[in-house]
């Protein structure tokens, strides 16, 4: 197998050292075992230990290594290097950069927490499990699998403009995950919580979230269902 080289342009910024951010050009020869972008980043880091990025599970379930890859948000560990020669890497857009590819996710998690992301059921807990039919459980598919990587919210223009007021696709997907759960009793409160010109209704169905979700989830559809419920209870 001939040697494969990937040419990177990587956003670099260390506030401890750099006056301002810059794009670093760097090429790396891949080993045969380097299949994914994360493998290449780990190899790059073995040559230059100052490159900072988050990573953990390397199989697309922990949500650590979200970044902007050739202009589109995605997970480095699920991005194939097959046939790729040039890669431009930037941190997730719209959030403050801490260093290199590491962003400050405080605002993202604040919005997630704002929807009360936990089951509310005030009836005394039964001795055994609460029953739920397979069909009722099926309603949660496509909702509970979110890994909180923030690819969606940081690709959403509405979130870029109002990250403090618009919940964003990840948070709204989580809100609908609890609304859709037959065991949850707080639907009214959850809808009240989103009844506001910004929190829910800043979603204009641009669908960037659907386009980038590494788990193939569809926040826009979930948001549409919440909007329908809002309309239904208004009339």
């Amino acid at each position: 197998m001939s040697k494969r080289t990937v040419n990177f342009k990587i956003y670099r910024y260390d506030p401890d050292r750099d006056e301002k951010p810059y794009m670093q050009d760097i090429s790396i020869d891949l080993e045969p075992s380097d299949k994914k972008l994360l493998d290449a980043l780990v190899r790059l880091k073995s040559k230059d230990d100052s490159l900072s990025f988050r990573r953990s599970c390397r199989e697309g379930v922990c949500g650590s290594d979200a970044m902007n890859i050739n202009g589109k948000n995605g997970l480095a560990c699920l991005t194939s290097l097959d046939g790729v020669e040039n890669i431009v890497l930037r941190p997730l857009p719209g959030l403050p950069v801490i260093r290199d590819l590491v962003v400050d996710m405080t605002q993202f998690f604040k919005q997630y927490h704002s929807i009360k992301p936990y089951l509310v059921n005030n009836e005394p807990a039964p001795e055994r499990e609460r029953l739920q039919s397979p069909e009722e459980r099926e309603e949660l598919n496509g909702l509970y699998e979110c890994i909180l990587c923030a690819c969606c919210s940081t690709s959403c223009p509405s979130f870029w403009w109002n990250p403090d007021k618009f919940v964003g696709p990840a948070g709204l997907l989580a809100a609908y995950r609890f609304i859709a759960d037959t065991r949850d009793q707080a639907t009214t409160e959850r809808l009240d919580n989103l009844e506001d010109p910004y929190r829910l209704f800043r979603c204009h169905s641009i669908m960037n979230c659907v386009d980038v979700c590494p788990k193939g989830l569809n926040p826009t559809r979930a948001i549409g269902k919440i909007k329908d419920m809002m309309v239904a209870r208004a009339v």
């Binding site: 936990y118 059921n121 055994r128 499990e129 029953l131 609890f178």
Partner: peptide, 17 residues
């Protein structure tokens, strides 16, 4: 069972368990 009460989305049998 506690975890189920916390909201864990376990798969279900036909009788809801």
């Amino acid at each position: 069972v506690e975890l189920e009460h916390y909201g864990m989305p376990f798969d279900r049998t036909d009788n809801g368990k």
